[in-house]
Write a protein that binds this DNA or RNA. Structure first.
Lengths: 156, 156
DNA sequence: ATGGTGAGTCCGGATTTCCTACTCACCGGT
DNA sequence: ACCGGTGAGTAGGAAATCCGGACTCACCAT
């Protein structure tokens, strides 16, 4: 999954190298929902079993999931998110919100999420410093290494 | 890219069906930075030219990018994000922040983004209703259709 | 002894990706 | 007029992945 040539160094690319393969984020979705058993994952995601096994191995390897024994005899396992995995959940929620709005036009949503405040969760990405929602026009990119060039309106 | 069997209906899966293929989100990154020309994309992403061409076609088709002529003669094109594309940028920023923290341990970042407020952008996903940051423990999933089952701590 | 479940592995074929090279249109210099 | 260079792709075949279905293995339950 690593890009081959000599692309830019970039944390987005790095993150995608780790969770960007097909099904990986869906695995995380299920695991965050508590459906962490192999057969549940197969059913809910619809992935081939061998591919799923490969993804699970990888996600454990990179520290996003852990494999826990929940029954000694018979041996039964369950995958659970690590802290790093849980911290990816906001990405899922943001993606869900985008999909809800752009792909389902905000109607007929298959799932909603309730926030502890009592309202339906509509995730919004904000600037930690000032609290304002992140809008494209408000951003300026600052390359820190050679190899990054930015030409457009978001340029530094 | 659609999952094959009969997986859950899910906006996350839908979104990934559209931007989840290899390189798609990196294309969006570049395009949001203003680097929307074919050869720039090839260089900056490191993707094979034919794959990139396929991704661009698809992203235009689904309304995330537009192809603009920026020079009539010689004919030269540039890809730019649509509104829907720009609204995916928060996903990229959130992913970047995760990668910065977990894959680079917060040091030696290849790029930083400045928010209009003057601070370095550290994206935070919040609940639009109450403004609090989204944490896993504060969420409850509510399936709206049959086929969704949730067993774990985030269960409804 | 038979059947069922969970958690995978294995196999052969279908699909994608990758790499390299090639095209085509145009421009700019000499 | 010729030569080289750039932008934006296409083309072709080898290599890597993915897919579906069958199979395994260990362990209950009846």
């Amino acid at each position: 999954m690593a890009a081959t040539k000599d692309p830019r160094p970039c944390s987005i690319a790095d993150a995608l190298a780790v969770v960007g393969e097909k099904y990986s984020l869906l695995v995380l979705r299920e695991v965050c929902l508590g459906n962490g058993r192999f057969d549940q994952l197969v059913r809910n995601i619809g992935a081939p079993r061998d591919i799923l096994a490969a993804r699970l191995r990888r996600l454990v390897e990179v520290g996003i999931l852990t494999k826990r024994l929940y029954s000694e005899r018979p041996q039964r396992f369950e995958y659970r998110p690590t802290q790093a995995g849980l911290e990816l959940e906001p990405v899922l929620m943001t993606l869900k919100e985008w999909g809800d709005r752009h792909l389902r036009k905000g109607i007929d949503l298959p799932m909603t999420v309730e926030h502890v405040c009592g309202n339906e969760l509509v995730p919004q990405v904000t600037c930690r410093a000032c609290g304002e929602p992140v809008r494209h026009e408000d951003l300026t990119a600052h390359p820190q290494v050679p190899g990054w060039t930015v030409t457009g309106p978001t340029a530094a």
